[in-house]
Deep mutational scan, measured.
Amino acid sequence: GKMTGIVKWFNADKGFGFITPDDGSKDVFVHFSAIQNDGYKSSDEGQKVSFTIESGAKGPAAGNVTSL
């Protein structure tokens, strides 16, 4: 299901970062391709987002990331 969290950091040059879930669980990796914004796929530190957890090649990753 959908979770909410805060972007801990995001490196636009490398195209990835981490989200800290609101439920206190482990930080989740986020790749720019998962960000659902139109246009520039980046996110700012401290941005509140909703997301799903997908199982990626390197473990859990955020999917369907949407700014709230």
Rank of each mutant, 00 (worst) to 15 (best):
Y40S: 09
K14R: 11
S67H: 14
A12R: 14
G56L: 07
S67P: 14
D44V: 15
G59C: 08
K58G: 09
M3C: 10
S67D: 06
G63S: 13
S43V: 15
I35L: 13
D23G: 06
D27H: 05
H31F: 09
E45M: 14
K48F: 09
H31Q: 04
G24T: 02
A61P: 02
D27I: 06
G56A: 08
D23H: 06
Y40F: 14
F32H: 10
L68G: 04
Y40D: 08
G56Q: 10
E54Y: 14
T52N: 07
A61W: 15
G39Q: 10
K26M: 10
D38P: 13
T66N: 07
D13M: 13
G39E: 09
F10M: 03
S67K: 14
I6D: 01
A34L: 03
K58Y: 14
F16T: 02
T52I: 11
A34S: 10
S43Q: 10
A12Y: 13
A12Q: 12
N37S: 13
S42R: 11
K26Y: 07
K2N: 08
G15V: 03
E54I: 15
G5C: 07
P60W: 09
E54C: 13
D22L: 07
D22C: 14
G63M: 14
F29G: 00
S50A: 10
A12V: 12
V49H: 01
A62E: 02
I19G: 00
D23V: 05
Y40C: 13
A34N: 08
I6Q: 07
S25W: 04
I19P: 01
P21F: 05
G46T: 07
G5V: 05
E45H: 14
V65H: 01
T66V: 13
S50Q: 08
P21W: 05
K48S: 07
V30I: 09
K8I: 07
T4V: 07
S33H: 06
K41I: 13
F16E: 02
A62F: 02
K2D: 04
V65P: 01
K8P: 01
G24F: 04
D27M: 06
F18R: 01
T4E: 03
S42P: 11
F10Y: 09
D27L: 06
L68F: 08
Q47S: 12
A62M: 02
D27T: 04
G39N: 10
K2Y: 12
Q47G: 08
G5P: 00
G59M: 04
E54T: 13
H31Y: 08
M3E: 03
V7M: 12
K48N: 05
L68N: 06
E45P: 15
A34P: 03
A61T: 14
G1R: 13
G59E: 02
G56P: 03
G15C: 09
A12C: 14
A12D: 07
G63N: 11
A57C: 13
G39V: 11
T20S: 10
V65E: 01
G46L: 11
M3R: 10
G46M: 09
F10D: 00
S67W: 15
W9K: 00
T66D: 04
F51D: 00
A12W: 15
G15F: 04
F18V: 05
G17Y: 08
V28K: 00
F10K: 00
S42T: 14
P60V: 11
K58F: 14
K58A: 09
L68P: 03
I6M: 08
T20H: 07
G15L: 04
T4C: 12
D44K: 15
W9C: 10
M3S: 06
G17E: 01
F16I: 06
D22W: 05
S50Y: 08
A62V: 03
S55Q: 14
S50V: 08
F16S: 01
G56D: 08
S42E: 08
G5A: 02
D44Q: 15
F16G: 00
I6A: 05
D23R: 03
N64L: 08
N11T: 03
D23K: 05
T4G: 03
K58M: 10
D27R: 04
G46I: 09
G46H: 10
F18H: 01
S25T: 10
F16P: 00
F51A: 01
S55L: 14
T52L: 07
N37T: 13
K26T: 09
Q47M: 13
Y40N: 09
E54Q: 11
N64E: 06
D13P: 05
D23F: 06
S43H: 12
Y40W: 15
V7G: 01
L68C: 09
K48G: 06
E45Q: 14
F32I: 14
K41E: 08
S25R: 06
S25K: 05
V30H: 03
S67G: 09
F32R: 12
S50G: 04
K58N: 11
T66I: 13
K26G: 12
F18D: 00
N37A: 13
K26L: 08
V28Q: 01
D38A: 13
S25N: 06
D13W: 12
T52Q: 06
I19Y: 01
G5F: 07
S55V: 14
G5L: 06
D38V: 12
S50L: 08
V49G: 02
K26A: 14
M3Q: 09
N37Y: 13
G46P: 09
V7K: 00
F51S: 00
D23E: 04
Q36E: 10
V65I: 05
G63Y: 13
E45R: 15
S50E: 09
N37F: 14
G63C: 14
S33P: 02
I6C: 11
I6Y: 11
I6N: 04
M3Y: 11
E45K: 15
I35D: 03
M3H: 10
F51G: 01
Q47N: 09
D44M: 15
F16A: 00
W9Y: 07
K26S: 11
V65D: 02
L68R: 06
V7N: 02
D44W: 15
N11F: 05
F51E: 01
G24C: 08
P60K: 09
D22Q: 04
S25G: 13
V65W: 02
Y40T: 09
D22M: 07
G24K: 05
W9D: 00
A12H: 14
P21C: 07
A57S: 11
D44F: 15
K2G: 06
V49P: 00
F32D: 02
W9F: 08
G63Q: 14
I19L: 05
S50M: 10
G59L: 04
E45L: 14
F51V: 01
S33C: 10
I35N: 03
V65S: 03
S55W: 15
G56F: 09
K41Q: 10
V30D: 01
A34K: 08
I35A: 03
D27G: 04
N64C: 11
I6E: 04
V28G: 00
F29Q: 01
T52Y: 08
S43Y: 15
K26D: 11
L68H: 06
T4F: 09
G1A: 12
K48H: 14
T4I: 08
N11V: 03
I19N: 00
I35Q: 03
G59R: 07
G5T: 02
N64V: 06
F51T: 00
S25C: 07
K41G: 12
F18S: 00
V30E: 01
S55M: 15
K14M: 12
V28P: 00
T52P: 01
L68I: 13
E45T: 15
K2A: 08
S42W: 15
K26E: 12
N64F: 09
K8S: 06
A62K: 00
I6T: 13
S50F: 07
T20D: 02
F51P: 00
V30L: 14
I35T: 04
Q47W: 15
G63W: 13
N11W: 09
T52H: 07
V49A: 00
K14N: 05
Y40H: 10
N64W: 09
P21D: 02
I35W: 15
D13R: 13
I19H: 02
N37D: 13
S43K: 10
M3V: 09
T4W: 07
D27V: 06
L68T: 07
S50T: 09
F16V: 03
H31P: 05
K48E: 06
E54N: 09
A61E: 15
F51K: 00
F29S: 00
N11R: 08
G1C: 14
A12K: 15
D13L: 14
Q36M: 13
N11Q: 04
N11K: 05
A57F: 12
T20R: 13
H31S: 07
D27C: 09
K48V: 08
K58P: 06
N64D: 06
F18L: 04
N11P: 01
S25L: 04
D27K: 03
I6V: 12
S55T: 13
G39F: 13
F29K: 02
A57P: 14
V65L: 04
F29M: 02
S67Q: 11
Q36R: 09
W9H: 01
G24P: 02
K14L: 13
D38Q: 11
P21L: 04
G39I: 11
T66W: 06
Q47R: 12
G39A: 10
P60E: 07
Q47D: 11
T66S: 08
Y40I: 12
K58E: 06
N64H: 09
V30W: 08
I53S: 03
S33I: 05
K41M: 12
G1D: 10
S42I: 14
A57I: 12
A34C: 08
V30C: 08
G63F: 14
D44E: 15
A62S: 02
K8A: 06
T52W: 08
F32P: 02
K48L: 10
W9R: 01
S67T: 12
T4M: 07
I35F: 15
V7Y: 05
G59T: 03
G24S: 04
S55N: 13
F10T: 01
D23P: 02
A62T: 02
F32A: 11
G5E: 01
I53P: 02
Y40M: 11
